[in-house]
Amino acid sequence: MDHDNPIVHDIFGIPGADLNLSNLLMTFIVSLIVFVFCVWGSRKLQMKPKGMQNFMEWAVEFVRGIIKDNMDWKTGRVFLPLGLTLIFYILVSNLIGVATVGTVGHTLWWKSPTADAVMTLTLSAMIIVLTHYYGIKVQGTKAYFKTYVSPVPLMLPFKIVEEFTNTLTLGLRLFGNIYAGEILLGLLVGLATSSIFGFFGAAIPMLAWQGFSVFIGGIQSYVFVMLTMVYMSHKVSSDH
């Protein structure tokens, strides 16, 4: 189980610039899958939807429902592509490590990109930055800064801390769930490959855990998008 990550240290000679090639590969593959799937799903659009178009429209309706739960549709509609892309990206990222974990030698190449805290925190940080951007854009600079000192100026430190905790919880929740799933899967695989008894002992728990991981992957992608929209609505809705 001593898997290494294919890390390239100090790329372009910049000290501290370490790149995990596995992440590079997997984000590219996930992006490719999402892109191909979505474009394939939404080609040949018709008034009377059939097959894939139904599914894609269901997904659109689903994310639209998440957004509508948190803010009014007029301000929320610009977040629909973001929410849709996020939910597909995270879902595919989560599931890609459930089915298969690929290693070359002792190097872990194929895994969920979301099983890496750096990746999930990048996503969550991006979301938080976007909430601030849209907060300023929708509410105006003055109203945006006013939210930090309302209802009382005493709230200012808490509000600032909240942004960091939001970033951390949003990213680490996803990471923790997926990483835990992959660790347990790794353990089960280790058990299954250790002996013939281990194989039969591990087969059924592995099946159950893979099913559960698929479930977790779906739930976590939903939760991520849900929380994205919650944070977004905090920033863009004036009544909060």
Partner: peptide, 21 residues
């Protein structure tokens, strides 16, 4: 890693927004 992820995600977002959503 972060930059790579951000780059891929933003490119993906732009592409699927244009071609799918």
């Amino acid at each position: 890693d972060m930059l790579v992820q951000l780059f891929f995600f933003i490119v993906l977002l732009a592409l699927v927004k244009k071609f799918a959503w």
